[in-house]
C-alpha cells in the first residue's frame, strides 16, 4: 500500500516543491483508528482536493494539518507531518502559532457575532496590529481577495451575521486571509451555500494560489475536478476499520485514467 502511494507521490510532486509532507500517518479517536498509513505530499501554491465517501476520514485528515484535532479530547496522531520540512507535531511547536500559518474554513460559515470590519480585523488584532490605518488597509485587501469588498464596502459596521450564507463564507475566507496564512484548509466550504457564492469562491481559490497553498475537502467531484490540480481519494472499505489513501495524483489523471479500480468505481458513481 504505502510503496504504491509513494510512487504516485513522486509523480505528482515533480513540478513544485512540497509545502506539506505526510509520512506513515495514522489517527485514533480513543480506541477507534480512523486513518492508517497515509503518505502524501501537498504541492506548494496549488489546490489539492481530498475526495471520498462521507465518513472516510478526509476531514479528520485535514484537521491534522493545523492540529485542530488537538481540541478534541482522546485523539492521537502517529507518523510525521511537516510544514516546510518542520515537524508540526514536534514538542516545541505551539499549535497556536501553527494555526496562524495554516488557516481554516469550515463547512458551516461561522462569522463572529460582531461587525464585518471587526470580523476581518480579529486575527490581525490578536497578533498585535493596533494602528487604525493599517487595520483599514488589511480589512480592505482581505475582503477584495475574498471577492466580497464590492458588496460590503458601505456596510462594514453591520453585524457579520446579517449577511447571506454565501457572503458569510466569503467573510470567513477574508478573515483567514487577513492573517496572511501560507496554507488554507477548506472543509467542504461550499456545501451549505448558494450557487452564486460557490462560483465566487471557486474563482477566488484560483486567484489565491499565487501566494498560498489550498487543500479542499469536498464531496462534490465536479468541484474537485474544476478547482484542483491534485486529487487524493480516501476510502474506508470496511466499517470500523481505518480509512486509507487509495490514490493520489494529478486531478486530470484521477478523473481520466485512475490507476486503482476503487478510484474508478467511485468517480464513475458505482458507490458512495
Amino acid at each position: 500500500m504505502s510503496t504504491d502511494t509513494f510512487s504516485h507521490l513522486s509523480q505528482a510532486a515533480d513540478e513544485r516543491p512540497d509545502k506539506i509532507t505526510v509520512k506513515d500517518l495514522s489517527f485514533h479517536y480513543g480506541d477507534f483508528q480512523a486513518l492508517t498509513d497515509i503518505n502524501v505530499g501537498i504541492s506548494s501554491k496549488a489546490v489539492t482536493a481530498f475526495i471520498g465517501p462521507s465518513g472516510c476520514g478526509k476531514s479528520t485528515f485535514l484537521r491534522c494539518f493545523n492540529r485542530m484535532n488537538d481540541l478534541i479530547p482522546g485523539t492521537r496522531v502517529d507518523g510525521l507531518v511537516t510544514l516546510d520540512d518542520q515537524d508540526i507535531y514536534a514538542p516545541g511547536v505551539d499549535p497556536v502559532d501553527l494555526r496562524r500559518r495554516v488557516g481554516m474554513i469550515f463547512q458551516q460559515p461561522n462569522p463572529f457575532p460582531m461587525s464585518i470590519y471587526d470580523n476581518v480585523a480579529y486575527g490581525p488584532r490578536l497578533h498585535g496590529v493596533k494602528r487604525k490605518a493599517e487595520l483599514d488597509e488589511i480589512v480592505e485587501r482581505s475582503l477584495e481577495r475574498a471577492n466580497l469588498w464590492k458588496e460590503v464596502k458601505d456596510i462594514l459596521g453591520r453585524n457579520g451575521l446579517s449577511l447571506s450564507g454565501g457572503q458569510q463564507q466569503r467573510l470567513c475566507i477574508a478573515r483567514v486571509l487577513a492573517v496572511e496564512p501560507e496554507v488554507m484548509l477548506m472543509d467542504e466550504p461550499c456545501s451549505a451555500i448558494d450557487p452564486t457564492s460557490v462560483q465566487k469562491i471557486e474563482d477566488l481559490m484560483a486567484e489565491l494560489t499565487d501566494r498560498i497553498t489550498i487543500i479542499i475537502v469536498t464531496h462534490n467531484m465536479q468541484q474537485a475536478a474544476r478547482v484542483s490540480e491534485y486529487t487524493a481519494f480516501f476510502l474506508q472499505e470496511v466499517a470500523g476499520e481505518p480509512a486509507v489513501l487509495v490514490e493520489f495524483d494529478r486531478t486530470t489523471n484521477i478523473f481520466t485514467s485512475p490507476k486503482d479500480r476503487r478510484t474508478e468505481d467511485y468517480i464513475t458513481g458505482r458507490f458512495g
Binding site: 481540541l71 497556536v96 494555526r99 496562524r100 488557516g103 463572529f112 457575532p113 480579529y122
Partner: peptide, 22 residues
Amino acid sequence: PKYIRWGSYGLGATKWQTVSRI
C-alpha cells in the same frame, strides 16, 4: 456555538483570547 470558537482557534487565538474576545 462550538464552530464559532473553532473560527477563533483557527486564526491562531489562544484559549483565553477566544474566551475573552468571542
